[in-house]
Design a protein around this nucleic acid. Structure first.
Lengths: 189, 189
DNA sequence: CAATTAAGTCAACATGGCTGACGTAAATTC
DNA sequence: GAATTTACGTCAGCCATGTTGACTTAATTG
């Protein structure tokens, strides 16, 4: 514990130990920053949701159905990683209150394909704009290039087994895959 | 698998709009990445906590007390932004089971200064190492310089009013450069 | 001494996870 | 064509963790 107490210059005195300790401190800072960042990230949307009597769980459904119209219930379960019963509780409310609509799949009529109504789209977009606004501002404050680096970091934080699926979900379902090279996210180490 | 998404988005004719739409798409991707990253970030620790009958709330207390020995209850409430009653529930368990110890403040004996026992330290460090490990790996995969950029981004994501306090907590209160103990500072006359 | 402050506690409630069991309709397989 | 599997829904109850409101105790402070 006292390795560093004597040195005025922790970096140069004991290269190996000091760097290691310093790196650990930095990483712990990031743990805490991630906690605070996420805590505040959800704040804006939460306050809007409150006005509708909804919670964060409703938001997630609205978001992913908005982004992936025609999503099946099973797909949504896989994305959210919650149980059918947990999803049902919020999904039922969203359907009953006219934010989400279901259609039977035409090839497999057991499937209930999820869509947002115009009311649902409006709310989902409003919530998204709040989150986008905060993120955009943070990127500006973080300096040029922060968006790409951060996206790579966040992607790398995802559990290995899920990365491919998330990548498909995010960059595979719309048309802008050309601008953001998928290879960038691939294993590069 | 999923024959969904027949959305025909306006692959825009006007150049300015394309950039704007593209930027929006990127930002929404980041919203989703943040969700997935945070979800998986907490996963490793959660599984360990389960073995102790603890949850994420216990983890937060362990973490911040570990990082800031001598923390007052009021400070912890301010960090976690939860109510006294919510904190009490988990704090009581941690004290009863010998992970956290309290001492009365020397200058103000109403204060209960929080510390971890050796048992508590051991668990907190174990949990921290899991999270550090994942973050370190993610930084490597994200490429050089990702740590600094990401830290700046995460910091910028914090609500403006809290930034100063978080900065103090992270870079001022812990053992970055100088050994620094809150209790020592407050109690010295 | 009176008022304020730090902390603890009790009771009740909401949200959003979970498990287990069961139902129903449609698709698939034997 | 019957049996099985699949996709989805639903009921009932448990657990963790957040909330509000009211009240107590002890110590500090004006």
């Amino acid at each position: 514990m006292n390795e560093r107490t004597q040195s005025d210059e922790p970096r140069s005195a004991r290269p190996g130990q000091a760097d290691q300790a310093n790196s650990r401190e930095r990483l712990i800072s990031c743990v805490e920053l991630l906690f605070f960042a996420y805590r505040d990230f959800t704040n804006d949307a939460d306050r809007v949701l409150e006005q509708y009597g909804f919670g964060r769980a409703h938001h997630r459904v609205l978001h992913f159905v908005n982004r992936n119209p025609g999503l099946r219930v099973a797909d949504l379960l896989d994305i959210l990683k919650i149980t059918k019963q947990s999803l049902a509780r919020v999904l039922k409310q969203l359907i009953d209150e006219g934010f989400v609509a279901q259609r039977s799949g035409k090839s497999d009529r057991r499937e209930r394909l999820l869509h947002l109504t115009s009311k649902g789209t409006k709310l989902a977009d409003r919530l998204a704009n709040l989150q986008i606004g905060r993120i955009a501002e943070a990127f500006e404050r973080a300096g040029p290039g922060a968006d790409e680096v951060t996206a790579r970091f966040l992607f790398a934080m995802i559990g290995e087994k899920d990365r491919a699926r998330v990548q498909d979900l995010i960059w595979g379902m719309d048309q802008w895959g050309t601008q953001f090279d998928r290879e960038q996210q691939r294993d590069q180490t």
